[in-house]
Design a protein around this nucleic acid. Sequence first.
DNA 1: TAAAGCATGTAAGAGGTTACATGATTGG
DNA 2: CCAATCATGTAACCTCTTACATGCTTTA
Lengths: 188, 188
Amino acid sequence: MAILGLLKEQELHGYELKKRLAEMLGFASGVSFGSLYPALARLEAAGAVEAAASGARKGRARKVYRVTARGEELFEELLAAENASSDDDRTFNLRLAFARYLPPDARLGMLERRRAHLVERLIQARSRVKAVRDGYARSLVEHSREAAEHDLSWIERLIASERAAAAPPSLTDGPSLSTFRPYQEENT
Amino acid sequence: MAILGLLKEQELHGYELKKRLAEMLGFASGVSFGSLYPALARLEAAGAVEAAASGARKGRARKVYRVTARGEELFEELLAAENASSDDDRTFNLRLAFARYLPPDARLGMLERRRAHLVERLIQARSRVKAVRDGYARSLVEHSREAAEHDLSWIERLIASERAAAAPPSLTDGPSLSTFRPYQEENT
DNA sequence: TAAAGCATGTAAGAGGTTACATGATTGG
DNA sequence: CCAATCATGTAACCTCTTACATGCTTTA
């Protein structure tokens, strides 16, 4: 999905693609060549990308890839997928980076699913905070609870601004906004 | 390492181990049986763990594992390892959870390496914030910068309390404390 | 001209996931 | 007694990483 998304914006060859992926995924990532080239080969075999005219170099010329119509379809599919694998952080971040390609409702759905996931995570983190008395593990669970709270409020801000952007014509139409309620703990 | 660390505290069989691992690693984890049992078999083959007397069940009795002397050694090695793979979040969290088994200086070293890693991450995040103008990607990099700041200050608090605990006898011995300086940005 | 970086690719090996297979035990 | 849960394992498959192989291009 990352490859297709990047190629969608601009034709690129593998080496350049690797650099873009590294800065896009930021820390904790960057694919290796042994992962990237086979992936490109698979995508080409599947007809999702094609190599444009190779530069006028001798020997192993660099292959500039471009997304095909089939590739666009595949990208939409991957981006819109509501499967369970979209639950992990890495996948969500990647999806959000390409969220502009999603229709507004699908985008909102993605954010809400993420929010639900984070609420669960927060609940879990809180129960672990109660369970672990002290030591490094305690510090760890407290920090992960704070991180979860932080993530959650971030997502809620995103959702709010998304809704605001989705329904700008009228300033007094309650229904579309009334569905969303920020997470509030019941027992404090 | 996680398996050895848990078994070090208490003899357990695979199924129970899986549950403990799931709650220990919290969200974003929990090993599958297809991963756990082969891992246990590898550890047993390596002489790091051994099966205690199996419960009095017929058929496939459950195997209660216990750490051997060799296993203790292996655990120490894995825990103390200063290799590059200790840079990722998952590994660090796992290590911190078992940090009580490390000698104070190694523990401090681990925290400092983590801090250095987070400082780098923060610098990277800040440069990306400058690079990305707007859209979802912008929101993403801003959030990851905030997360990095949060993580960093958490680690610095941990380091501070570690140092405070390491040198309690004298209240005025500068040297051991003077080495550490919280991260402050130079250009704001 | 030698080193560093650009550029593409393959091979071996490790480890993980899902799905399958098997059987015991407990609770409604 | 039937379903769920406990409990252990195997097999097929997939993808990643590391290390290797190859050769061009730029720069000190």
